[in-house]
Each structure stands twice: as C-alpha cells, then as structure tokens.
Amino acid sequence: MIIDHPLLGPRDAREFTYLGDAALIDRPDGLAAGAEDAFYDYLYLRDNPAGLHRELWYHEQGDRSWLVVTRDTRSHEITQVELARDVALALGRGA
C-alpha cells in the first residue's frame, strides 16, 4: 500500500504503524460526569464498516506524524490523507 503523506508525499505503508479507528481522537473528558460509560464506548465500541473507514496511521519510520487515512476497506483505495493534528483541532480539541 502507498500512503500519500500530506507533508512527505507517497510513502510505502511499511513505514507506518496502524492503530485503528480515527474515532480514538475523540477522547472523552475523564473528569466529566458519566466518564466511565463514555470511556467504555470510546474504547470498546467501534464501527467495522465495509466501505470508507477513517483510521489512524503513525509514520514511525518517518517523521512521526499521526495521520488520518480514509480507506475503503473493500478495495483498499485511499481517498484522503490528513494530519491527525489538523483533524483533532478541527474537532475542537485543544489543550
């Protein structure tokens, strides 16, 4: 597989480490009420779509960027690659 890194261009997938669903970016607040249920959902309830899937890849043998890769799980076609940091900021995550 080839991942088109937003900063470095096309790179072999073997330079990357796979984590999983990009929903992991959306971590609940550990101090909020009902945090235990929120963390249960966050950690264990994942979608497993046959189709487009947004997932986290880490450029471990490269620049250490975390990326959000949109991949079709049926064909492995990659339709979008974003810096995870940009995705997180757009979701309103800050400090």
Partner: peptide, 19 residues
C-alpha cells in the same frame, strides 16, 4: 521505548493538539 514514544506522540498530536 518505541511504543511509549508512539503513545506520547498520539497524545500530543491527536488528543491535546493545543498543548
């Protein structure tokens, strides 16, 4: 050593990018 670096980078870039 590698796994912790990866984990801390995940926290830095994905969880708290404003830090």
């Amino acid at each position: 050593a590698g796994a912790v670096t990866r984990h801390m980078e995940f926290a830095r870039q994905c969880l708290w990018p404003g830090m």
